[in-house]
Computed example of a mutant assay.
Amino acid sequence: MGLVFRVDGMGDVRAFRVEDPGRLLSAEHREIVGGWTSDVYFAKTRDVLRRLGRLDAEVTAEVFAREGGVFCGLEEVRRLLVSVGADAQVEALWEGEEFEPREVVMRIRGRYGEFGLHETTILGILSSSSGWATAARRCVEAAGGLPVLCFGARHVHPSCAPVMERSALVGGCSDASCILGAKLMGREPRGTIPHAAILIAGDTLRLAEAYGEVLPPGEGLSVLVDTFKDEAEESLRLAEALKERLTAVRLDTPGERGGVTPELVREVRYRLSMAGYGHVTVFVSGGLNPDRIRVLAEAGAGGFGVGSYIAHGTPRDMTMDLKEVDRRPVAKRGRLPGLTPTDRLKRVI
């Protein structure tokens, strides 16, 4: 049996067979919307509540996180609920707002049968998205107003790379390199030419000149300078040849060569400025975190590309509790019955 549109109970789960064993392992849009990424006990719950005549009970669910962070994932949850046809009322924080540990970040009121199957998916969306947005925010705060670009797509599974980079933009990153992630936010993706291009060209200046000729209008010319020569030497060589066309040099020195240090940033910045190229920004990437960003900013870095720190941002452990059934206060042991007092939630659906 192939995939039906939506899981309605355990009969669908038992009957389902994977039709294409060679498919990619990530879930498709219709599989997520259909409930196939849900935990199986929610399919069992549908059968049990249907037997009891309670599948369509009106409930109010609250979502909270065990630690604070930056809220993200609301738009995807909204699209999910619209896609499954849930006639639910939803209140939530705005994306990008900070939240405290155990603070309610979302409240959903509606018939349980219309959204209960998707508890797993809703929590997963909010947990991962908020974790990535929080990591991005900490980098942006450390940069003190300097631009932070997200280069994290290579550090996560491609199925969630666009979600991660969108979350980074919500967290405050100025740009994202993942094409789909940026486009989903109505933005243009940004990023420089990789070392591979320079190695194939055989010379950094030769590559930079060709790069400048094919750049989209309005995009600055930023070039890696750690491929073949000393970074300060290569930076001056490019600046002298390209003049005002060169907008930034990027330092991505590998750990095998000591990485990008404050001393290196300070020297490159000093030599460029002394030679009359103060307009050229020293952009830094490679294993950055908030602590390193602060130090490198003080040394003269003018922008940062962050990958693994954002991509590996710790998910916020989200929990969904039913707090009302048929408008009556309820709660499991250890939790207080009824709606949690808050004045921060806004009606979003």
Rank of each mutant, 00 (worst) to 15 (best):
M320Q: 02
L336E: 15
A275G: 05
R250I: 13
G276N: 08
I310R: 07
T281Q: 13
A311F: 03
L322H: 01
F304G: 10
A239P: 01
L242D: 12
V265S: 06
R294W: 02
T281C: 06
R294N: 02
R327E: 15
K243V: 03
E298L: 13
G278C: 06
Y277C: 07
Y270T: 14
T314P: 00
E267F: 00
V330M: 04
V249M: 01
A239N: 10
E256P: 00
G276C: 08
Y309I: 02
A299I: 04
F283T: 00
A297S: 15
T261C: 11
E298S: 14
V268K: 05
G300K: 07
R266I: 00
Y270Q: 13
P329I: 12
E267I: 02
R257S: 13
R316D: 05
L251R: 10
E256A: 15
G303Q: 05
Y309F: 15
V268M: 07
K332F: 11
E256F: 02
L288M: 05
P337N: 06
R333W: 13
P337F: 11
L288I: 12
H279R: 07
A241S: 14
I310G: 13
R269I: 03
G302R: 11
F283V: 07
A299E: 01
G334H: 09
K332Q: 13
A299L: 06
R327L: 11
V280S: 07
